[in-house]
């Protein structure tokens, strides 16, 4: 499992390099598709089955398709030579190096949330608190088998049900708001891409005739 994970991660990193440094736009898009798919695989390995599917369907299947279509529509053969000796490039490289180092070191030293708490404090994870499933390891203490999922609990309840319980229960407000967001995005897209209406040609004679008709009709 670990080996598999390592391989997938390395491949994802390489294809990400392809996204950023490809000279042709279409190559970048295809690299991104690959990256997305590889990340989906990572999700699957990390026991997030629902996200695996969603990632493939939405990201790889819709968003990236949209990208490719737009590239095809606008300028498929566009080339883009990034300037090499650019201050921003240096900054960016330094950012990459610095941030990654810091994150790695922090992760190695377990700088993260306190995983041993059993109270409702803010720094605790909910998964440990409600239902005390993880605390006692007793599955029957959690009637929905949804809170806090050690491996066997997820195997019993299923990842989808667990996620669904969170989305529609605790986080139902953000969920509704994101649906509103999608609506706004749809409206925005329609508005941005509409064709500007053409002014109808004014035919003065036609207007005259129409007006005469009206007058005659009112006798």
């Amino acid at each position: 499992m670990n080996v598999l994970l390592a391989v997938i991660l390395i491949l994802a990193a390489i294809s990400a390099l392809g996204v950023v440094f490809s000279s042709k736009t279409i190559y970048s898009a295809l690299s991104l598709v690959l990256t997305v798919a590889l990340l989906a695989a990572v999700f699957l390995v990390l026991n997030a089955q629902f996200l695996f599917v969603v990632q493939l369907i939405v990201y790889a299947g819709a968003v990236m398709v949209l990208f490719v279509f737009i590239i095809a529509l606008l300028d498929p053969a566009a080339e883009d030579r990034p300037r090499i000796f650019d201050l921003r490039l240096i900054l960016g490289v330094l950012a990459v190096a610095g941030l990654c180092t810091a994150v790695f070191i922090a992760a190695r030293n377990d700088v993260t949330y306190d995983t041993s708490c059993t109270t409702q404090a803010v720094t605790c994870m909910h998964g440990y608190t409600v239902g005390s499933l993880a605390a006692t390891g007793d599955l029957s203490a959690d009637p929905f088998h949804t809170f806090g999922f050690p491996e066997n609990a997820v195997d019993r309840a299923g990842n989808v049900q667990t996620l669904a319980n969170q989305i529609f229960h605790t986080y139902v407000l953000p969920f509704e708001i994101t649906s509103l967001l999608l609506l706004v995005a749809a409206v925005g897209a329609v508005y941005l891409t509409r064709r500007v209406a053409v002014e109808p040609r004014r035919d003065p004679q036609a207007e005259e005739r129409w007006r005469d008709d009206l007058v005659e009709g009112s006798d």
Binding site: R88, L91, G92, A95, L99, A102, V103, A106, N109, V111
Partner: peptide
């Protein structure tokens, strides 16, 4: 791109600072 540079710069600084502090 200039705006993005500023953002990146400060995000990186901030993140590193927070991690150091936490560490």
């Amino acid at each position: 791109r200039d705006y993005a540079s500023y953002m990146v710069l400060f995000v990186v600084i901030f993140t590193i600072a927070v991690m150091l502090a936490a560490g």
